[in-house]
Every structure is written in C-alpha cells, then in structure tokens.
C-alpha cells in the first residue's frame, strides 16, 4: 500500500465513525449520514496531502458536512424528512430509543444552521471560532445561533418526563 493510502487508512479507521455520527446529528437520517460521510471522506482522500500537511483534515470534513446539509435544505426548500429505522415498542421506553427519537425530533426541528452550530459546539466540542469557520459566519452569529438552538431544544424537550439539563 502506498504512503498516501496508508496514512489515509489510519485517519479513516480513527475518524470514520465519528464523521458518520456528526453527519447523522446534522441531517437526522443514518442513510444520508453515511452518504455524507462517504463523500466527505472521499474528498479528504482527494486533498489528503495538502490537508494533512496543514493539519486541516477535521476542519475540512466539518465544512463539507455542514455545507452539504445546509445546501440540501436550501435546494429542497423544506426541512428534510426524518427517517427512523424502527418504531420503538411503547413498553420499552426505557431502552433509550424513545428518548433518542425525542431528541432527534427536537434537533430536526431546528433550522439547519442552528442545528449545525449546536452540534459543532456541544457534540464536536469546538471553540466558537472554529464553529464559525465551519459555518462560514461570524463568532457573534455562532453565539446567537447556539443560544437560540439551545432555547428551542429546551422548549421542545420540556414536555418530556426527564429534565435533560437545567440552566443555560
């Protein structure tokens, strides 16, 4: 195997699952998430030398994912439908699937940029500046989007029997 492929394989093995999960949180559908992740990783492969040299691989992946999800929502002019694989049994509410669906619905209800801001800040644990870079907006906009997004999530999940977090 050539160096390029060997280096990229190391990255793939370490990060593919993470990329897929982030893609899922951004788009809300595992199948689309896999497509998004595949495309983002294939693009990383295309630019591997430059990205790796500048330490920009993760930032590039995030940009590709966010841009694709936001453009998708623009293109179709409506929020993408959320597809769930399985409808949970009512009696099995404690398995976590129902809770997962509640959170997914709440995330899916956010406008794409708000959702991306929340996911990048709190799931990817990115600083505001890097979130802004991924979203292509100012740091002030990120703060505003995160604040609105968290507020919307809190309201959406307020009727749940479990209080997920307190304060703001």
């Amino acid at each position: 195997m050539h160096d390029r492929d060997r280096e990229f394989r190391s990255y793939f093995e370490a990060r593919a699952a993470v990329v897929r999960r982030t893609a899922f949180l951004l788009c809300g559908d595992w199948h689309r998430a896999e497509d998004l992740a595949q495309t983002a990783l294939a693009k990383v492969y295309v630019h591997w030398g430059r990205l790796d040299r500048h330490g920009q691989v993760d930032a590039y992946v995030r940009k590709v994912l966010v841009r694709a999800v936001i453009d998708d929502s623009r293109w179709r002019g409506r929020r993408p439908e959320t597809v769930v694989e399985a409808v949970p049994e009512v009696a099995e509410a404690s398995t976590g699937v129902e809770e997962a669906m509640d959170v997914r619905r709440a995330l899916a209800a956010l406008p794409p940029r708000q959702r991306a801001a929340v996911v990048l800040r709190y799931w990817e644990d990115l600083p505001v500046a890097e979130t802004a870079a991924a979203l292509g907006c100012s740091e002030g906009t990120v703060k505003s989007q995160v604040s609105k997004g968290l507020d919307a999530l809190r309201r959406a999940l307020a009727t749940r029997r479990t209080v997920l977090w307190e304060g703001s």
């Binding site: 694989e85 699937v97 799931w123």
Partner: peptide, 21 residues
C-alpha cells in the same frame, strides 16, 4: 452545562446502526 447538552445529544445516537462505510 456543556456536558449535559452533550449527553442529551448523545441520546440521539442510541440506536446507531452498524456502519456501511
């Protein structure tokens, strides 16, 4: 708060299917 939000987001991944990547 960030840990709590992160945990909340993590619940959305509860039934993560096997990866086809």
């Amino acid at each position: 708060m960030s840990d709590e939000v992160r945990e909340m987001i993590r619940t959305a991944l509860a039934d993560e299917p096997a990866s086809g990547l």
